[in-house]
Structure formats: structure tokens, C-alpha cells
Amino acid sequence: MVEDEAPSIRDMLAVNLRAARSARGLSLSELSRRSGIGKATLSQLESGGGNPTIETVFSLSRVLEVAISDLLDRRAGGAFTVVRGADVEVLRGEGVDLRQLRRIEAGDGVFELYDQVVRGDAAQRSQGHVGIEHTIVQTGRLQVEVAGRTVEVGPGDYVAFDAREPHCYTALEAPVHSVLLLQYRADERLDGQAHPVLNG
């Protein structure tokens, strides 16, 4: 049996960004103004073009007040699921590489599970986005700054915080391999419902 090729991050973002913007009643111009992302860039993203980065996707999540997976949803399914890291497209940022492994819906909440690598070439800053961010370090040492407070964590350590606060990850011993879990409440999902996605 040949499996269908999974849609790309660009394809998923194009479909879901249009749906989220429409549901929020925002024009491209207004979304551009609120997010600081150029109108031409947004138009390109909605057409399935461009090269979306972590910064772009997290900014859109913050402005639209939706879960990251509401923009990048792939809907992994089944009770027995295997996701090969090598088969997952990397969403790259200034200092972090993310691979979305799974979206988990439990009751009214949503959880997103990521393989996260914090590189040593730059700090990864976020203005904040919806959800609670949970990180478990596997290898390396990580500095986490949240709203002016700083902590260093190493292998086996865990840190969690309100992701709406400005935050920054910096690899002190690079690369830092970690598990990132984003947790969302029902009111942080677009209309509390699934969004239209490609291929089903």
C-alpha cells in the first residue's frame, strides 16, 4: 500500500491561514498591521508560496489567537501512530528547529507535541503566543527567559510557562535537544472546532 504524501507546511498554512483570517473577520491589510508581516508576504502564504518561519507562524498564532496546529494541522490519527522524524518537515526559526510530531485533542483541550532543537547560532525570541509552553531538555543546556526572569535547565529538567509572555530560548551547550509540548484551552482554538485541511 502506498501512502499519500503528507501536505507540506506551506500547503497546510495556506488553507488554515485563510480559514482563520476569515473566521476572525480580518482583511489581509488588518492582519498585516496587527502582525507586522507584510501584506504581500501574507498573500503569498495564503497562496501556498513563500518560506514560513517559526517567527511568522508564531506571530500569526498570537494575532489570530489560535493554536499553532490550527495553522499547521496535519491530523495524525489512530490509536497506534508512528511518526518518523526524518519524514517531518522542519519549521526553522532564528535559533530553533521544530518538527510537529502530533496534535492531541483531549476533552476541550489541545496539545501539540514537537521535537525541538535549539541551535547555538542565535537566540530564539518570541513576542508571545497563546497556550502554555512545556519543555523537557534531553541533551545540552538551555537558558529560558520569560518576562524578564531567567533560568538554566539541563538534561532531564522541565520548565513551563504562560506562552503569552515574551520569551526567549538560548542554547548554552549547543545543540539542545528537547521535547516541546504546547497546551491550549478550548477558547484558544478557533471556534473550538477543527479547521478544513488538505487531503481529508
Rank of each mutant, 00 (worst) to 15 (best):
S29V: 14
Q138G: 07
S69C: 09
V83E: 10
T170E: 10
Q183W: 12
V130Y: 01
A40G: 12
D108N: 07
D187C: 08
A76H: 13
T150E: 14
G107M: 07
Q44H: 05
D11Y: 00
T53Y: 01
L72K: 09
I9M: 07
L64H: 00
L26F: 13
Y158R: 13
R74F: 07
S35E: 05
G93D: 03
D191S: 11
L180A: 09
P196Q: 11
L42E: 03
R149D: 11
R149P: 03
I104T: 06
L28P: 11
E188M: 10
R62E: 00
M12D: 04
Q193S: 12
C168L: 15
S27P: 13
A122P: 05
S35A: 09
S47H: 08
Y114C: 04
V15A: 09
D187I: 12
V137N: 05
S61Y: 00
I9D: 03
Y184R: 08
I136H: 04
L31A: 07
S43W: 03
M1A: 10
R84E: 12
E133N: 10
G109Y: 05
E188N: 04
Y158H: 15
L42S: 02
N199H: 12
A123C: 04
A163T: 06
P7I: 10
R74C: 00
S59T: 15
G48Y: 08
T139L: 06
D121N: 08
A171C: 04
I9L: 15
S22K: 14
S43G: 14
T170W: 05
L182Y: 01
D187V: 14
A122Y: 01
D70C: 03
G77R: 14
